[in-house]
Design a protein around this nucleic acid. Structure first.
Lengths: 138, 138
DNA sequence: CTGAATCCGAGTAGATACTG
DNA sequence: CAGTATCTACTCGGATTCAG
């Protein structure tokens, strides 16, 4: 039981402590829309306009897109460039830091797409088992 | 402008459509606690007990841990083994599928830890800019 | 020890309307 | 086009209690 090392956790165990700074980062990334935005910018590999992102990310509302982009901009992952034309034109691109994050998030998107079938099967099996016994109500 | 291919999106663009099956997967993974659980199981590389996970993941409540583990079990990422002892003992481990997911999520945790400093700096800069103009209240 | 069940407040997301 | 500003509905997550 590692009694001699009881107090010595692996160095990365600190990630899971409440006050670990990395947690604040993860909490920004662990978000559906943040994953999509970073992934899309990474995969298209070019700055994108607000409404372009909005059309691409089916189902996102203007509010959530704004909010997500602000959070990513605040974290230095996304850059926002305003072209003072009329009508206004705003482009969002990945910073150097954002490219790194985008690689991770697009990897998750790819993995999800590749394994969606298996997971759907697992879900059906699980739900089937779960509903054998209980009443069919609700 | 690729006018000839205007209707032809990259194949992965489907990931961002509302009805894409991969979205349901991403929505499970794009969650702070799911990331932590998968990452922890992956990094420790062995099955872990409920309360062991609970102690490790500082701040998680029993409810959220249960809920997260159920969702991951349902998706076939985590296996649940009950040892009919008294008191009961339940171990959670990664399935083959879960190992793949765990690699991605622990990569995010590592990246976050490595870049937390830079991001904290970016946040201070952003917040500084934002509060230059407005009243210093609150 | 490993949960399930309940209650409840805070925050989030959606819809809508308006602006530069 | 690219937002801001509300308003509401609702879900999520935390705390607590109870059970096998």
């Amino acid at each position: 039981m590692d009694t001699a090392l009881e107090g010595a956790s692996p160095s990365w165990a600190a990630t899971y402590r409440r006050d670990c700074p990395s947690r604040t980062v993860i909490e920004v990334l662990a978000n559906k829309w943040a994953l999509y935005v970073l992934g899309a910018l990474r995969r298209y590999d070019r700055p994108m306009r607000f409404n372009e992102l909005r059309r691409l990310l089916d189902g996102i509302t203007q509010k959530m897109l704004t909010q997500t982009l602000r959070a990513l901009e605040r974290d230095g992952l996304v850059s926002r460039t305003v072209y003072p034309t009329v009508p206004p034109r705003v482009e969002y691109g990945l910073t150097e830091l954002g490219v790194g994050a985008g690689q991770l998030t697009s990897a998750i998107a790819e993995w999800s797409a590749e394994n969606a079938q298996k997971i759907a099967t697992a879900r059906r099996a699980f739900d089937g088992r779960a509903t054998v016994e209980p009443a069919p109500l609700q």
